[in-house]
């Protein structure tokens, strides 16, 4: 399921990233890699603030939907 499905406070483990654009490559370099845990800190109309490796990142909905979590 995509990261967008998580509710505030929930966390999940990344399975893969969809689409191999420069943007997705950038996400990988920021640490969105297979096996990494993400936690949703807050949600604003589909846009997310998440915790990854102990830091906060803001993503919009389109970007978050490219991040697929393990079920």
């Amino acid at each position: 399921m995509p990261l967008t499905m998580l509710k505030q406070g929930q966390s999940g483990v990344i399975q893969e990233l969809h689409g191999k654009s420069a943007a997705v490559r950038h996400l990988e370099e920021l640490g969105f890699i297979t096996g990494e845990t993400v936690r949703v800190i807050s949600e604003l109309a589909g846009n997310l603030i998440i915790e990854l490796k102990g830091t906060r990142l803001a993503l919009n909905k389109v970007t978050a939907s490219r991040i697929i979590l393990k079920n």
Binding site: A23, L30, N47, L57, A58, N60, V62, T63
Partner: peptide
Amino acid sequence: PAPFVIELPA
């Protein structure tokens, strides 16, 4: 528009 991802500093 480009995908949006930005680090939020404390």
